[in-house]
Design a protein around this nucleic acid. Structure first.
Lengths: 127, 127
DNA sequence: TTGACCCGTAACCTAAAGGTTAGTAACTTA
DNA sequence: TAAGTTACTAACCTTTAGGTTACGGGTCAA
């Protein structure tokens, strides 16, 4: 990377640019894995307790069976959730795999921000 | 997937259901606003310093002019960034509006998680 | 045994996000 | 003066995420 001075204005420092570039890559990668419309919601729904297919569908409002099914497969493959089958009685449940716990901070900050943002929109609308 | 023998009936805990439901809504709302492929990357790119159109395009690898243009418009409208036009010399720059600072924690946790996740994928691949 | 509920899947469709190419108007540099 | 850079935009196209409908077998309760 070259450092150029133009019109006396200082330009980008190499040190920060590297860190920034890494940060961009990290965020992109993260969103690639968990950035869909439903994945995090499903994980949040299961954080409370293990749940059955239709229970999840009821809690994650608006999701269709087709999409829920494919998301669950995806999440199981990635190691976020597990599928548990009981035979007596027959019962299928999904639950959070340990790796989902690594998302705690992400979920917390997103939830907090989402809540604040909604408040902001409300007060903005009143102005 | 694990198969378990179980003889009791399952019970659903409603204790945290309300909180969980709110959390799901918050996360969904947040992702609706900042969950695209590029928005957070652009914000991270501008966190370092104000930048010009092509500077952003170089830093956010893979984004096309068309998409960058429309994302910038969107971000400006939502209040995350501002557009600054200088006339002598003619210079157009974009920078973070104060509201973007509210995303600091979100960006930090996502970046951290993304980095950890990449490491995990690497070590997993070696097994 | 009839109907309700559970856990999906197949096939199809739509909308929107994003990519590609080309072009423009203004300014700058060689 | 010609070539290059900047900051876009228009038109068009492709991909894919996600929605809709319909159907399957299995279970359970009346």
């Amino acid at each position: 990377m070259e450092i150029v001075e133009k019109d006396g204005r200082p330009t980008v420092s190499t040190a920060h640019a590297g860190h920034c570039q890494a940060s961009i890559k990290n965020v992109s990668d993260a969103l690639y894995v968990i950035g869909g419309k439903w994945k995090l919601s499903i994980i949040v729904a299961l954080a409370d307790s293990d749940k059955r297919f239709t229970e999840i569908q009821r809690q994650v409002e608006g999701i269709s069976a087709r999409v829920l099914s494919s998301e669950l497969k995806d999440l199981e493959l990635t190691g976020f959730i597990y599928k548990k089958i009981t035979v007596d009685p027959v019962l299928i449940e999904y639950g959070l795999a340990p790796y989902s716990r690594s998302l705690e901070q992400v979920v917390r900050s997103l939830s907090e921000w989402g809540s604040q943002h909604r408040d902001k929109l409300k007060t903005d609308a009143l102005q």
